[in-house]
Nucleic acid binder design. Structure first.
Lengths: 227, 227, 227, 227
DNA sequence: AATGAATGAGTCTTCATTCAT
DNA sequence: CATGAATGAAGACTCATTCAT
């Protein structure tokens, strides 16, 4: 290949700049606002300059997802090796997620929305990472179950619940508002951990009895329950 | 100038058809796939035919959101007047939401994603509806708090948590999978209502302080979170 | 399909205009000079207007080839049904070809060059037509052999020789020059028919004996010798 | 400024390599596939590396044509000095041409197609060579006429006929087929030399007048040939 | 009420070419 | 010598929208 971008120091920086600017543009507004031209303009680079680093627009989107996920995974792996109690880790997962959405909403949108509009070709690579990430989270929850801090439940559903809260935050949470991201994470954690029921009602089954929902199975996903 | 659309019976039906097909196109795929042409093709109508019913594409999007929200609000209003215990109502809100996402994923996407890409003109009208809907939900939660079934918490955050679960479900829940939407709603409710903590740990809720989480950093980006 | 170009009278004419202008642009210069823009400009139509009639540039090229071949085939079919002696028909084939190249060089270039740069999808359709055309020509030659006017030779090679002369003419023949296309066709025909050898040399084998080349076989083509 | 290219031995070899690779790319596919990038990729050189040897793309194309023509001319000159009978030389011209097309189709395409898309600057130089080559061929034919082996005809038309056969071969001849290039050349020579007419018909060459051919008309085009 | 024709303003992508190192 | 970085100009294609009929 005669095309080897990112060899020079300046080149590496440029690539990162582009990536970052693209995220920024996604963050403030719709995906459709992230055009190759808008990125180029914002960086004061020519449009064709971008194509030196990313052969297609999709490659750019791909790179964003890849980096985000890689970062998330790396961080999660470190966390899991920290030796702290699993509950803490689970709680921290929630906290970090909320913080990430608060700091750079584009990252999470990149993961969840981008997946609905990209080429199938290298999609698998990303999906593998997504699965990895999901499994790591679920494994952490399982750890908490094993250590006895979380009662036996399907760890994957707990994970989905946490992801829900994080992902949805982007649609309403304003870092500038009265609620800090820290406070939000704490509130969500409390809800999830001890529930919202009043003491008396916790034991009283609601009208429709709640069936034991643990160990339900997914289809169409290859999630294998962690151990 | 032709007559105003929606005067004839056939015209009204046509309009509804268009609306429905547009939703369908959103449901399966990205928003970018919902072009005036693709809708026209799918309906076997000429492109200009669509412009009889919707003067602009934004009007179509607007109509979708309007219809969805109105439907949700009406339903919620009826629910609140049913005289049943508030806990049940809250739980049902969650259930209905999951069901809706399961049946027609586009509905919730219409509400949450569409808001990020439409023209501001009649945006206020929609926002008022969104607020209405949100307040009705929050009021229901408040009702449960008042009746003593839910312990005193910020009802808006509980509402957001419920919306989170519902909205996020569209990204992973497959109605064809082995987990029914009912089972999912039940599992989520259990988590939310009695929490995931084991009995012993419930009592030391915030005992373990959350340590300062190391910043989630990403490779090759120079993004430094605001303070 | 909501897209039905060529329904109106004006539409049909437009389509033909576009096709014709495209050919013209190919004729005077390289293929690369036939851009969608140049066609649009030349016709005083907007670029997107062209796309109403041809969804892709390739469709335009395809249409040109299709029409050219169809015209050629129709004409050839009529000729073959005219009841005249086959020699005349063969000679006329050569004459018509030279005339066509003289009148509109683009047509033949369309057939022979375009085939090297088009999508494979509908390529078969064209190839079938090309085969048809070739077979009709070869069959005419065979007719002449059967009627005794042409000596037994491989009719396909004779056909290729005729096509050669026609096709190559585009590279050097100028209708405005001193040689009329009629004269050229006559000269070529004489060469091909009675050969260029002087009387004495016709019977003298040249240094290397000329082997009987009749009935050689092709590979990679599905030409079946016309009975 | 760097040294002039082609000073080092390695440099000369590099230049030849590039030239050769470019031809190869022309040979298999369209001209449009021969981009500076594709050549660079194929040679595992950087794009800017090419610009060391050829200041412009046109220089490359020019070089290809130059080399090809020079080769042909040199060969032809040697042939003409060989002292053999002119008929043999003419026949050999045809044979060599067919062989060349068979071995490297790009060569003839370079001559005939390239001329239609290059910048005019040094075009004259090439054209002079083309004329030289053509004249040498025509002179050889004239020699045969003078020696009495070929009957008096316009030697230029005979030359064109030969070139036709050679050039057109690239569009259909497959070296891998069952017809060898030798056999093809022989068959063509036979046709050209003694003609395809049967003995009886030879004597009434233009007896049958060519009837006014009906104009070859094409559907949907308004192309009317200039009288 | 409905359609085909037509358009302008993008949006992605390619490519020959230059330049600093 | 050689390369990565960068660019301008152009080209294919899309899409919301308007208009005459």
């Amino acid at each position: 290949m005669a095309r080897k971008p990112g060899v020079t120091v300046a080149g590496v920086r440029r690539r990162a700049q582009i990536l970052h600017k693209a995220e920024e543009l996604i963050a403030r507004g719709a995906f459709q606002d992230m055009t190759m031209e808008s990125i180029a303009d914002a960086l004061d680079v020519s449009k064709s300059g971008l194509y030196h680093y990313f052969k297609q627009k999709d490659d750019l989107l791909f790179a964003i997802r890849l980096e985000t996920l890689t970062g998330l995974i790396t961080h999660q792996r470190e966390r899991m090796n920290s030796g702290r109690p699993y509950v803490d880790l689970v709680r921290e997962m929630l906290y970090d997620g909320i913080k990430l959405v608060s700091d750079s909403p584009a990252k999470y949108r990149a993961i969840f929305e981008l997946k609905m509009k990209s080429i199938a070709e290298r999609e698998e690579e990303i999906q593998a990472l997504e699965r990895d990430y999901f499994h790591m989270m679920a494994a952490t929850v399982q750890g908490a179950i094993d250590e006895g801090s979380i009662r036996p439940t399907d760890p994957r559903l707990v994970t989905q619940a946490i992801l829900s809260m994080i992902n949805h935050a982007q649609y309403w949470f304003k870092p500038s508002g009265r609620l800090s991201h820290r406070a939000l994470a704490d509130a969500y954690w409390e809800m999830l951990f001890i529930g919202v029921a009043s003491e008396e009602w916790r034991t009283v089954p609601t009208a429709t009895p709640i069936p034991r929902a643990a160990n339900v199975e997914f289809i169409n996903t290859e999630h294998s329950p962690p151990s």
